[in-house]
């Protein structure tokens, strides 16, 4: 499924993707296509890509192929989702303690769309940190 979403193959492309998008949230999935966690996430991303096309655009980055950001963004999870708006990293309070990224695979499409919409609305109002509608502190790994 992940073949349907656009991959970025080097650091420059990632930079440009984040820089050049002016109206939409840029969602970047860092990870590996072959990783089971990423596969689940990519499936969700693929399902919601069409529904979010008005306010978000999704890119996939292989962290082995493009290791440029691993250190800066601390990409050591199998799957990491980060949000950017107009070249600015948008943080989300997920209740997990890590506001920088979603580092697990989300399965609920509507849930993810709700998060992205919150990010989009918050970012457009100039917020650097938004609160996700759902608290993930008790679910998943934390």
């Amino acid at each position: 499924m992940s073949y349907m979403l656009q991959h970025l193959h080097n650091g420059w492309q990632v930079d440009q993707a984040i820089l050049s998008e002016e109206d939409r949230v840029v969602i970047i999935r860092f990870g590996h296509d072959w990783d089971p966690t990423c596969m689940v996430m990519d499936e969700t991303l693929y399902k919601c890509a069409e529904k979010m096309k008005n306010f978000a655009v999704i890119f996939l980055v292989d962290i082995s192929e493009v290791p440029d950001f691993n250190k800066m963004y601390e990409l050591y999870d199998p799957c990491t989702i980060m949000f950017f708006y107009r070249n600015k990293h948008i943080m989300i309070d997920l209740g997990t303690g890590n506001n920088n990224k979603i580092n697990w695979a989300m399965e609920d499409v509507q849930e993810f769309i709700d998060i992205v919409e919150t990010v989009f609305r918050g970012a457009r109002k100039g917020r650097g940190l938004v609160i996700s509608p759902k608290d993930y502190s008790t679910k998943y790994r934390y």
Binding site: G95, Q110, T118, I131, P133
Partner: peptide, 11 residues
């Protein structure tokens, strides 16, 4: 058709 979220987390 999304789930119901707690109003405390919605701005």
């Amino acid at each position: 058709q999304s789930q119901f979220y707690s109003s405390r987390r919605i701005d």
